Amino acid sequence: MRLYIRYMVSLRCKMMVREELKKLDIQYAIVELGMIEILEDITPVQRKQLKENLLKSGLELLDDKKSILIEKIKNVITEMIHYSDELPHVNYSDYISEKLDYDYTYLANTFSEVKGITIQQFIILHKIERIKELLIYDELNLTEIAYKMHYSSVAHLSNQFKKVTGLTPSFYKQLKDKRKANLEDL
């Protein structure tokens, strides 16, 4: 039996969910981002208690099919951008469609209807967040980041970054360096 959880987007969230399952003595096989594979059916009382306990941690046990599908889409994108070493070399639409085994048009329409933004806009927002991380870690230069994040050029990355954040990547990186310098002056 599978259960789906909204806002479960990090390793810390997975640890919290495992703890809640242990507390309720619910046997599980898998705890992934946004999903739990439970070994046996749970009672309505256990489900209610799990739902309440997860809510206290900022997580939400999902019940309706559209919400579950949206969470699956978000988790595929989050995993693809933040947790894989390399982005797929196929179109994101093909990748998402293949991963979820749904027609992309259906996924895109459902996502837009529920979230109010397109899947592509959601991907761009996550790519920009990932770029911010890479800029802060200072391990790659902008050309390497553009290549890693599948931008056609540094100019394309810079334009999209500025459109979303209002800052250039260079200025964003300088802000980090200034904050670091200010802390050292204390």
Rank of each mutant, 00 (worst) to 15 (best):
D64H: 09
A155S: 15
T165Y: 09
Y28F: 08
Y102K: 11
E19Q: 15
L134G: 01
V114A: 13
S93G: 05
L183T: 01
D85Q: 14
L134C: 02
E32N: 12
V9A: 05
L11I: 09
K162A: 14
I77R: 06
H126W: 09
N109V: 10
I30C: 01
R47I: 08
N91C: 04
N75E: 10
L62T: 02
S93L: 03
K99W: 00
L100S: 02
I145F: 03
C13E: 08
I119V: 13
Y28S: 02
L69Y: 12
L61W: 11
S93F: 03
N53Q: 13
I128P: 10
H156K: 15
R47N: 10
N182F: 12
L140A: 06
Q46K: 14
D63L: 12
S170G: 06
L175S: 13
D41H: 13
L87G: 03
Y147E: 08
D63Y: 09
Y92Q: 08
E86P: 01
V164D: 07
H150F: 02
Y147A: 02
Y137D: 12
S93M: 06
I77G: 04
L54H: 03
H156V: 07
L54Y: 04
G58R: 07
N53E: 11
S97V: 09
L61S: 11
D64V: 03
L135T: 01
F111W: 05
L62H: 08
L87T: 06
Y92F: 15
P44T: 04
Y95G: 02
V164T: 12
D63T: 09
D185N: 10
H82L: 14
M80N: 09
D25E: 13
H89S: 15
